[in-house]
C-alpha cells in the first residue's frame, strides 16, 4: 500500500518535472522553427556562393565572352577553350518554341477545365493534367527516343525542311536535313512543349477559378457569349497570373535536363537550325560534368550552372512581382 503510494508520488513528481520542461519547451520550439528556416536560406545562399566561387577560373579566363554569341572560340575541351553560346542558344530556342506552342494550347486546356468541363469530367481531366506533370522526365526521354522522335518529330522536321527550310531568310533556322532518327533541337522543343503544358495549364486554371463568379454573371447578363466573356473579361483579369504561369513554364523548360539530354543529340555544333542536333545548358552539364578533368573545363560547366541559377533568380523575382501586382489589384477592388 505504502509502496504503491510512493510510486504514485514518484510518478507525480516526474509528471511535474516533465510539465515544467514541456511548458518551457516553447523556447526550443521557436529556436527550432527559426533554425530550420534559416537553414533553407543558408542552403540557397550556399548554392549561389558555390557556383559563383567554383566558376571563378572560367569567369577570369573568359569574362563576358563566355556567354557572347559573337565570340570566336567554341566549346572545345581538348584545347581548354570554352564559349557557352551554343548551349545558351539551344536552351533559349528550345524553351521559346516550347512556350510559343504550349501557351495557347495550355490556356485553351485551362479554359476547358475551369469554365466548360461538365462536373463529371472535371475530376478525371484534372487528374490527367496532374499526371502529365508528374511523369518523370526520363520516361519522357525513353518514350521520345523510341516512339515520339521517329513517329512524330521526324515527319514534322522533314516537312519543315522542305517548306520553311527553302525560304532564304528562314533557312538559317529551318535548314535541313533533320537526322533520320529525329534527334534535333526540334525534338527537344516538342518534348518540352508536352512537359510544360500541364504546368502552365494547371496554374492558369487556378487563376481562372479564382476570379469571382459575379464577373462572369455580369458579362453574360450584358449579352456576351461565353467565349466573349472568357476572352474580354476573364483572360484580361487573370493576365498577371497567366503571365506568372508562363514564367513558371519557362523555368521548367530551361532547367529540364534528362528528357532533353536524351533527344537533343549533344553536340556543341549544329548551328542555328532547329532541325539540327545541339546542346542546352542543362544537358551539357549532365553530359560533361562527371568527366571534366581540367579545372577550366569543370569551372566552365559550373559557370553554366551559375547562368542557370541567375536565370532562376530573375524568373522568380518577376513572378513574385506579378503576384504582388495581382494582390494589389484585387485588394484595390
Amino acid at each position: 500500500m505504502s509502496n504503491t503510494q510512493s510510486l504514485f508520488q514518484q510518478k507525480n513528481d516526474l509528471r511535474h518535472r516533465l510539465g515544467r520542461f514541456t511548458n518551457h519547451g516553447d523556447r526550443f520550439w521557436v529556436a527550432a522553427l527559426f533554425g530550420s528556416s534559416l537553414l533553407i536560406l543558408i542552403l540557397v545562399l550556399m548554392i549561389g556562393w558555390e557556383v559563383w566561387a567554383l566558376s571563378a577560373p572560367s569567369r577570369h579566363a573568359f569574362g563576358w565572352a563566355f556567354i557572347s554569341p559573337w565570340a570566336k572560340a567554341a566549346w572545345n575541351p581538348a584545347l581548354d577553350r570554352f564559349n557557352a553560346w551554343p548551349a545558351i542558344y539551344g536552351s533559349l530556342v528550345t524553351s521559346a518554341i516550347a512556350l510559343v506552342l504550349a501557351v495557347p494550347f495550355s490556356i485553351a486546356v485551362a479554359i476547358f477545365l475551369a469554365e466548360l468541363a461538365p462536373p463529371l469530367l472535371r475530376t478525371p481531366l484534372n487528374y490527367m493534367v496532374e499526371m502529365l506533370a508528374a511523369v518523370p522526365s526520363v520516361i519522357y526521354g525513353l518514350w521520345g527516343i523510341y516512339l515520339f522522335l521517329p513517329k512524330v518529330v521526324h515527319p514534322i522536321g522533314a516537312a519543315l525542311q522542305n517548306t520553311l527550310g527553302v525560304i532564304p531568310g528562314l533557312s538559317t533556322f529551318f535548314g535541313g536535313p533533320i537526322p533520320a532518327s529525329g534527334i534535333s533541337k526540334l525534338a527537344a522543343a516538342l518534348i518540352l512543349t508536352i512537359m510544360v503544358t500541364p504546368t502552365i495549364a494547371a496554374v492558369t486554371r487556378d487563376v481562372l477559378l479564382a476570379i469571382p463568379r459575379s464577373q462572369r454573371e455580369a458579362s453574360l447578363a450584358l449579352g456576351a457569349t461565353q467565349w466573349e466573356t472568357i476572352w474580354k473579361v476573364l483572360l484580361p483579369m487573370g493576365l498577371s497570373g497567366i503571365l506568372g504561369a508562363v514564367i513558371l513554364g519557362f523555368g521548367r523548360a530551361i532547367g529540364e535536363t534528362m528528357a532533353v539530354t536524351m533527344v537533343i543529340g549533344n553536340t556543341s555544333g549544329g548551328g542555328y537550325s532547329v532541325l539540327k542536333p545541339g546542346y542546352t545548358m542543362a544537358s551539357i552539364i549532365a553530359n560533361e560534368f562527371a568527366e571534366a578533368v581540367s579545372d577550366l573545363h569543370s569551372s566552365a560547366l559550373i559557370e553554366i550552372a551559375l547562368v542557370l541559377f541567375v536565370v532562376t533568380i530573375i524568373l522568380n523575382a518577376i513572378s513574385r512581382w506579378l503576384v504582388m501586382r495581382v494582390q494589389r489589384k484585387t485588394m484595390g477592388r
Binding site: G175, P179, G265, N266, T267, G269, G270, K276, P277, N287
Partner: peptide, 10 residues
C-alpha cells in the same frame, strides 16, 4: 558538328 551532321552519344 559544324555543318549540323554530328550527333553525340554518351
Amino acid at each position: 558538328d559544324g555543318i549540323g551532321q554530328g550527333v553525340g552519344g554518351k
